[in-house]
Amino acid sequence: MSNYEYNILPEYSPLYPKLPYEYKDYQKVSVYCRGDVKKLKQFLPKEFELISDIFEVFILQNNEIEGLDVYSEGGVVIPCAYKGISGACVAFEYVNTDDSLCAGREIWGYPKKLAEVQFECNEHMVKGSVQRKGKKVIDIVFERDDQEIVIPNLSPRLQVKRMPHPEHDGTDINKIIKNELQNAVLKKQVYGKAQLIMEQSAADPLYQLGVKEILGAMYIEGAFTLTYGKVIDEITK
């Protein structure tokens, strides 16, 4: 029996291997913003309750992964709750490889899209961007200033794994997934300030989030293991 176990299509040449995936070295820059409550609610799945007006915009570069091709990503994370379970939902997510795209969508329900992701880092500054369909939907410039900020709780991830029905309008799969990183290691953490620009795009309306204030930013380096999540509910309606 191969490592793929025939549960990932195509069976003779699966797009991605089975779990777990070992993220051995990554760099990430995060900007923490206060947003418009109405817009934040709009961009959450309808099943979730917004629990904070502070959200995260991030760009992440993976340098070494065991299980997937090395890729970079960016996105938006919004604190939320579902039936008393508090965490956060990745409301927008962009990656630059097809195996990370499909594994994320098919296994856990992350709303990943393909995009161009850029990440540059030196001892003074970090720059990152996500560009899709000719629009730079995330553009971050980070500078160190050592001013600590209070980070909202963004774990576990709460996602909706929703798939269209093949026979009619409606859903075939509609589950609430809880997912937590395992064996997380923080190698480096630097507080800072950041400039954040989100270009107007009809296809990716992150600019509508309504950033009222940038509270601060953080650069980190670390490692973690990504493995199976838990189905905490199945929506039958």
Rank of each mutant, 00 (worst) to 15 (best):
I59A: 01
V90P: 08
Q42H: 13
Y32T: 03
P79C: 10
Y82G: 01
I78Q: 00
D69G: 12
P17S: 13
K18T: 15
F58W: 07
K41I: 05
K18A: 09
R34A: 10
V70M: 06
L19E: 14
Y16L: 14
I59Q: 05
Y12D: 15
L44K: 04
G74W: 01
P20E: 10
E49S: 14
G84H: 07
V37D: 14
E64A: 11
F48V: 01
Y21H: 11
P14M: 05
Y26W: 08
E47W: 05
L68T: 02
I65Y: 00
D25K: 14
I78A: 01
K38F: 04
V29T: 03
G74A: 07
F48I: 04
D53P: 10
L15Y: 08
F58D: 01
E56G: 00
I54C: 10
C89T: 09
K28C: 10
Y23A: 01
L19G: 14
L50F: 07
V37Q: 14
I54N: 07
D53A: 10
F43S: 02
C80P: 07
F58N: 02
I65D: 00
I65K: 00
Q42F: 12
K24E: 15
S30D: 09
K38H: 13
Y71E: 11
E64Q: 13
I51T: 13
F55M: 09
F43W: 08
E47I: 10
I51A: 05
E73P: 07
Q27F: 09
P20R: 10
P79Y: 02
L19D: 12
S72K: 11
P45D: 08
G75I: 05
V37E: 15
G84L: 13
N63E: 14
F55S: 04
D69T: 06
P17G: 11
D53G: 10
N62F: 09
N63A: 04
S72N: 15
S13F: 12
P14S: 14
G75A: 09
K83G: 04
D25N: 15
L19Q: 11
V57I: 13
D53H: 06
R34C: 11
D25Q: 13
K83W: 05
R34Y: 12
Y12W: 13
N62V: 00
L19C: 14
F48E: 06
C80Q: 05
D25H: 14
K46F: 08
A81H: 04
L15H: 08
N63C: 12
L60P: 01
Y82T: 02
N63T: 04
R34K: 15
K39G: 09
Y23T: 00
D25R: 15
Y23S: 00
Q42E: 15
G75L: 03
C80F: 03
Y23Q: 02
K24V: 03
L68Q: 02
V37M: 13
Y82V: 04
Q61M: 03
